[in-house]
Design a protein around this nucleic acid. Structure first.
Lengths: 223, 223
DNA sequence: TTTTGTGAACTAGTTCACAGCT
DNA sequence: AGCTGTGAACTAGTTCACAAAA
């Protein structure tokens, strides 16, 4: 298992696109399902057909990281799954903290999809007296947002989820950066100045919804 | 106001990229802030500097839809705002329904950012007896998911937000499609077969978090 | 024979740079 | 003089198509 004789991982200088890495997550999810279905080996062609992907793209995406396939056969599901988990850094348990214990923060802290993929939500933060000291429904403790630095360091948090109101987002982000966390998933809308050394990934719910509004306005002149 | 003498909107055949439409939302948000700050006119250059965008790209994105600027001056903030709202279809109130009254569905139904941009959340749906007939904290009524068709038609819902568990997503999506709704914002993970005539936009929380995990695993070999 | 891994061709998206309008 | 709107140049991303491996 984990055969990778020709270790041809791309040089650190070469940038793997975010589109590629997003797809790696998708492939991993497909493989999980295939494994559950008892499939042992799969070709890029079959994988593509089954999940509406492009076979050449699957091969190219994987080829950035090594030669995981067997010509004439395809990919061993179990083997490729392990490789993908390793590439995505999911082979160790990553600790996550959620900033903001509002509706959205609470929902994200207890989101089953995160736990299922091996993330561990270890802390939440808020500034409201009524919330500090309490827990999410799923049992994640809510800390005082003024203790960011202390708690993030103590808990050795890897990734922060930012779900605070827009006006607080920049300040909280700066605090998070100061505590040594390197990666932030941001749900607050608007422009943020990204501190040095931070990888920020933003999910903008309003933009997503407005892009559907655009589609309705342009594509579909009825109603 | 709304001067657009040379109405040079692109032909319906021409596809405007989703990257472009996403940026239009962003520009609109920037303009809202500028207006609040009392700025009356702005050049693409200044807009770009202020919000970390690219000036040529702003001009090109806008140029798909008309000539909104004044040479030597820039854009009138109020005027461009109105144009963008119209392009994005935000000049009428869009009605939204949320499928799934779990943590995430509830949070989305009460998400203030949606209301702020003029969306109206009119209904939620769930299958749990304990939830049907209740309301979200913000007062959105929860219907029986078996009444999808009836309620969506009666309320004239424009956009559906899908926040049901992955195993239910396809079935609910098919129901939604059957009730005439044309646009769906999907939060459930995994592959969906998109019914004819539906525009599906997916936000995949797990993929977003995993892309940060990838960054930590690859980019940052410490820890 | 089957299917990978990959250069080459193609398509999409971004940025430059400047003519032309105000 | 200043700034837009836009072709041209460039960069990134996708798909094709096939030689080479099993």
């Amino acid at each position: 298992m984990l055969v990778n004789s020709k270790n041809k991982r791309k040089a650190a200088t070469e940038q793997v696109s975010e589109l590629t890495t997003g797809r790696l997550s998708v492939y991993l999810r497909c493989l999980n399902q295939l494994e559950a279905d008892g499939v042992e080996t799969i070709s890029s062609q079959t994988l593509a057909e089954r999940f509406h992907l492009n076979a050449a793209q699957i091969r190219k995406d994987l080829a950035y990281f090594g030669e995981f396939g067997v010509r004439g056969v395809g990919y061993y599901v179990k083997d490729l799954k392990l490789h993908l988990r390793q590439i995505l850094g999911l082979d160790r348990k990553l600790k996550v903290a959620v900033m903001g214990a509002g509706n959205l923060g609470m929902a994200l802290a207890d989101y089953p999809g995160f736990r299922r993929e091996g993330f561990e939500i270890v802390a939440m933060f808020d500034s409201a007296d009524g919330k500090i000291g309490e827990e999410s429904r799923g049992g994640v403790p809510i800390h005082d947002i003024r203790d960011i630095r202390k708690v993030l360091k103590k808990e050795r948090v890897d990734i922060v989820v930012l779900a605070v109101p827009a006006e607080a987002a920049q300040h909280v982000l700066d605090q998070v950066a100061g505590s040594g966390v390197k990666a932030v998933l941001n749900f607050s809308p608007g422009t943020l100045l990204v501190p040095e050394g931070i990888k920020l990934k933003s999910v903008d719910l309003t933009v997503s919804l407005e892009s559907l509004s655009f589609f309705l306005a342009q594509g579909d002149p009825t109603s």
